[in-house]
């Protein structure tokens, strides 16, 4: 019981979409998130967030991209174990007659795909930066993260 009580809220916190305030204007990282949880963005509207061990990154499409694409009706997920280079196509989504490629923000090896999207593609629209994540990747060169945009930079880019 005690264990469950301690873990459930954590899991919920991780799975739930971040509160609106984060997107609305909060620029600084909260201490609770820790400085190691790096989240970066690409010009193709993908995000990657590193886990606490700083080895595995979770990839997804941004809130902005999800809105621009419209209702996602089909998701093509990557094969686990696939070795990819930065910029390679790792999957695709279809929405409103549009087939859109999803590119990997970094080089590495795919360790997991979000199978929920296979059965419920609409999950991407519900929480593109939360439960609608796309795949996980073992990052081979952390230096590549440096070249990506921060939240601030992405917000400015997206408004352009």
């Amino acid at each position: 019981m005690a264990v469950a009580a301690r873990f459930v809220p954590v899991a919920r916190r991780l799975a739930a979409p971040r509160p609106q305030i984060w997107r609305a204007g909060m620029r600084r990282t909260f201490a609770t998130r820790g400085p190691l949880m790096i989240k970066k963005y690409t010009e193709d509207h993908e995000w990657i967030e590193m886990d606490e061990g700083d080895k595995i990154g979770t990839i997804g499409i941004t809130q902005y991209a999800s809105k621009a694409l419209g209702d996602v009706v089909y998701v093509e997920l990557p094969e686990v174990g696939m070795e990819v280079n930065k910029g390679d196509t790792i999957g695709a989504v279809e929405s409103v007659k549009s087939a859109s490629d999803i590119m990997s923000p970094v080089s590495g090896k795919i360790t997991e795909a979000n199978d929920v999207l296979g059965d419920k593609p609409g999950t991407i629209n519900k929480g593109p930066e939360a439960e609608g994540w796309f795949a996980k990747i073992e990052v081979s060169d952390k230096g590549e993260l440096e070249g990506l945009m921060s939240k601030d930079e992405y917000d400015a880019f997206e408004k352009d």
């Binding site: 196509t89 409103v96 590119m103």
Partner: peptide
């Protein structure tokens, strides 16, 4: 006429 789209790399 229908419409179909392909979006990739900008």
């Amino acid at each position: 006429s229908g419409s179909a789209f392909k979006l990739t790399r900008g």
